[in-house]
Design a protein around this nucleic acid. Sequence first.
DNA 1: CGAAGCCTTGATGCGCCTCAACGTACGTGG
DNA 2: CCACGTACGTTGAGGCGCATCAAGGCTTCG
Lengths: 218, 218
Amino acid sequence: MEKDELSEFLSKARSARYPKDSQIFGQGEKAEAFFLLLDGHIRVLRITPDGEQIIARYISSGELFGIAQAIGRDTYPANAIAAVDCVTLSWPGKLWHETVEKYPTFATNTNKVIGGRLQETQDRLLELATERVEQRVASALLKLANQAGKKTEDGILIDFPISRQDISEMTGTTLHTVSRLLSSWEHDGLVKSSRKKITVIEGHRLLLLANGMQDKDR
Amino acid sequence: MEKDELSEFLSKARSARYPKDSQIFGQGEKAEAFFLLLDGHIRVLRITPDGEQIIARYISSGELFGIAQAIGRDTYPANAIAAVDCVTLSWPGKLWHETVEKYPTFATNTNKVIGGRLQETQDRLLELATERVEQRVASALLKLANQAGKKTEDGILIDFPISRQDISEMTGTTLHTVSRLLSSWEHDGLVKSSRKKITVIEGHRLLLLANGMQDKDR
DNA sequence: CGAAGCCTTGATGCGCCTCAACGTACGTGG
DNA sequence: CCACGTACGTTGAGGCGCATCAAGGCTTCG
């Protein structure tokens, strides 16, 4: 897409602000628009008929989301909730098809985005099926630190509020087990955490845990 | 794509036969080609560094697979193994990009294919995280019967050889647990099975199990 | 006809969920 | 700004679902 084409495309966008904990769209709702996250972090949830939920992924700024049109759906497949105050751009759904027609690279690029998410999801499936809770939680922390980490004097802080419950919903376990793990890791100096805040201190040792190695410094 | 364009595209394909249990491509190999399954069934495996594996999906005839190029990868993300004797068409990888450029619908269609697989994978993730083994195995059988079922006088036969081990690798459990479940279901008349062969007899009762309901006919 | 691969079934144990109770930080309204 | 309520976190006790270990039977194929 050329510069002026891009700016024309951008000019059709609507900007919006979502306060922390507000819902941007809901699972099953008619997909009226697709989004680009300008600032903030978004939690993508999938819910079972009987109310249990898991966190499918976190969206960071710069990512497209809610692109139901791209995969030929007319409803959103998940909930999107602002994890912090967020700023988005959005376009009406029908503009997707027009844009794809005009700029074929748009479609091929989307392939890569969706393909990447497919990969990621399959990796998690493999993890969930073959690894123990401790490894999965360690992996999740590392991934979060990687995706949304902020360097501090203590270590790498995950830069949005995240509860034990959230982590349990990312890893298929309970908040109790997560709490116990974090307590034990904090005791051993691997992480530091307080209410809705987690800092990774010794990433390399966490990585050993994630890979199922014994931590000999224990 | 128009008729003569399609036939030109098809004329560039190479046809191949893969005997049962042979490998079509391997995880991590350079992706030289992409494939269309004309006849047969293919098992797609993902393997962990330490040798454990899960079945990501089964491909049925008519489906594209091994489309690493589409998602911007240059290696295959999984193993593809012929579950029965298979016939495929394949095209050199670089033809993907040319084709996409020439026929933009190709890219948008691929979006739908990949999007559908993403959905499916996320559904399985949700299942694996929230449901018990019994429910997952019941779901897997129903899905298989749906995707590759053949009506027989007894019920719906899954139309390719599939072992207890295979089912366990689809559902994140062990062959022992699967064996026990199938035995008990056979005893109750829900299924009928022998070596590498499974027939679903009472789908509706299996569905109840898959949804976590009590089976009151037990 | 033997050997390998697949399936079955029991016994045992443990990883993690569940249930329960209490401590602690946060923010909201008086 | 303090008091209170609510949401979040911690920690223990107990139990169960399912993996693991073990041993033997059956089917298929060379």
